[in-house]
Design a protein around this nucleic acid. Structure first.
Lengths: 158, 158
DNA sequence: ACGATTTCGACAACCACGTTGACGATCGTA
DNA sequence: TACGATCGTCAACGTGGTTGTCGAAATCGT
């Protein structure tokens, strides 16, 4: 395997982390596509979760996701087009536009969560529940040690 | 932490995987920037490694990275502009353009590898070497179980 | 040995997702 | 009431992908 030269051990860890994440995401979307959500893209699940049950605004969503309000607004646009979100005026502040999940949005989020749960169960079946929990604990530890926020990321920044 | 609802345990694992990857990558590039490679972008290290010491072609690189030859070609263009790669004609096949690392390319790759190694050491210092090795083993296991290739991915596909 | 097929690299158009900067409308307050 | 901060949107741009097309060069089959 040309990309995993054993003489460079440090390269392995990030690659494996990424690979683990990707397989999870790929499996999720393969499953979601079969459950009636073929157009849901990788980040959309996180976005829906960030919107939350009570709704929010584009600006708030942006800072919650760690991206600009413009980027958040664009993503909302797309999710609105796809029927997962809807916009409404805030009666108490004419500047704000509330962003809420539609029924389809709730369905997509619920299915995402449940598919993720079964994928985690699959990992547990392969590795044993203790190992999975250990991975989560360890990652939480290094994450905390690196003073990072668990919010959904800005990916690879520009 | 709004994005990590404990009622949805499945969401945690992918988030942590991604977060771990991202902190590694961010730390790498913060360090690389200080070592004279500020314009090296997250994927460039993987691309350089995929080029390898003997050079390759754009098409070959594309399939090695799991992206189209056009995408690989564009990335090569950028790396050539930045001085990390160079193109040369293949004397045995006038269609092929060999892609090779320059001295700067080798330097960048070597530094990436060494920074990754020290980051891994830092994880070892925090978690203990056994835990880090266990994470790698476990991820390798689920990866293998999911019959996936350890090559650098096409990220989130379209 | 020569024509058909395949392969390689490049070009163009496009999409997704992010960035800054600017700007009008609206709100809160001195 | 007038000013400053905030919200959403528009525009321009960068980056990393995609597909389709095409000419040039190599390979293969008769």
């Amino acid at each position: 395997m040309a990309t995993t030269d054993p003489a460079r051990p440090g390269f392995v860890l990030p690659l494996l982390l990424l690979a683990g994440f990707r397989t999870l995401i790929d499996d999720l979307h393969a499953e979601l596509a079969q459950q009636g959500h073929p157009e849901l893209r990788p980040l959309h699940g996180f976005v829906l979760q960030a919107v939350g049950p009570h709704g929010t605004t584009a600006t708030e969503l942006g800072q919650r996701l760690g991206v600009s309000k413009q980027a958040a607004g664009k993503t909302v646009d797309r999710l609105v087009t796809l029927g997962y979100l809807e916009r409404a005026d805030d009666p108490r502040d004419a500047r704000r536009k509330l962003v809420r999940m539609t029924a389809r949005g709730h369905d997509g989020l619920a299915r995402s969560a449940s598919v993720f749960d079964t994928l985690r169960d699959r990992w547990s079946a392969t590795l044993g529940p203790k190992r999975v929990a250990a991975i989560e604990d360890d990652l939480r530890t290094v994450a905390a040690a690196d003073l990072f926020r668990l919010d959904v990321p800005g990916w690879f920044g520009t």
